[in-house]
Design a protein around this nucleic acid. Sequence first.
DNA 1: TATTGTCCCATGCTATCCCATGAACACGTC
DNA 2: GACGTGTTCATGGGATAGCATGGGACAATA
Lengths: 156, 156
Amino acid sequence: MDRFLSSATNKIDTKGRVSVPAHFRSVLQKRGFVELYALRALDVQAMDVGGPDLLDRYEQRIALEDPFLQAADDMSFFVHGDGSFLKLDQDGRITITDFIREHTGIGAEVAFVGRGLFFQMWEPERLKAHAGAVRSRLLKLRQQASEARAAALPES
Amino acid sequence: MDRFLSSATNKIDTKGRVSVPAHFRSVLQKRGFVELYALRALDVQAMDVGGPDLLDRYEQRIALEDPFLQAADDMSFFVHGDGSFLKLDQDGRITITDFIREHTGIGAEVAFVGRGLFFQMWEPERLKAHAGAVRSRLLKLRQQASEARAAALPES
DNA sequence: TATTGTCCCATGCTATCCCATGAACACGTC
DNA sequence: GACGTGTTCATGGGATAGCATGGGACAATA
């Protein structure tokens, strides 16, 4: 399978290195990514990590904004300014830079989360909080959908 | 028969492995699945397990959303971050990872429940509690229906 | 000279392969 | 009907390969 799936939490060692989960590495290889880009996620405290296509995706997003408005400029500044390359060493580890720590709050451990075409790196506790919020939003969505269907029916 | 039907509880061995019920395995084989896709269910503490087609269905659903809105992001976070592939070993067993234990509370045994096109894995006690809740909900529904019918009739 | 980043190797844990055991069950023969 | 035989299946365990992690050595940098 060639999608980033599942999640795992790995430790950062004394030198600031952390192993990228083996499954993610095999996806990277399968997709032919040599260079890894780490970008700040726009609305959460996490890093989005992926290949060159991730940059394209971000640029598409930014292009949606009116180029005369400040938002587009801010986004570009935010994303490109604090983006970075990550190099995998021979053992499949990356070094967590201060850039990454600042934006994510990552300290001793990194939580990796598959997102299909890319993956994310989180501070584990923040990930847990975010996951809870996502679940409650999705549950609400589901309830709204079933209520809408019930209302559409002539009668219960 | 190519549907997941009935339920069974199997033991997890000292290495964290558990046999997938033979009947389920034959369904999987009939459908040509080598890998399993397991998702931490949204509203219950169980894993929904099916073939990779389950993931495909979710991804098609996500594709309907505007990729830059929160809904799409939430859905992807859930489907990819809370999903994982499981491999059947040669003896038809899977290993219960912490990823699964965390969400389900599974400890020493796994209760498998057929759900037609997919099946679920539960912690046995929780399954029992859930089954009880489902039954009483259904009973209430039925009572309400018959009361409504009685009220609609002119009366005896 | 200190520091930082690679490379390389060691270690222990975990997942996987392969084989063994024993229980439940079906089938056929006496 | 009773008994043996074979099959299927859940379960256990030894051996091994893969993986996360720790640390030494060395080069590049400042």
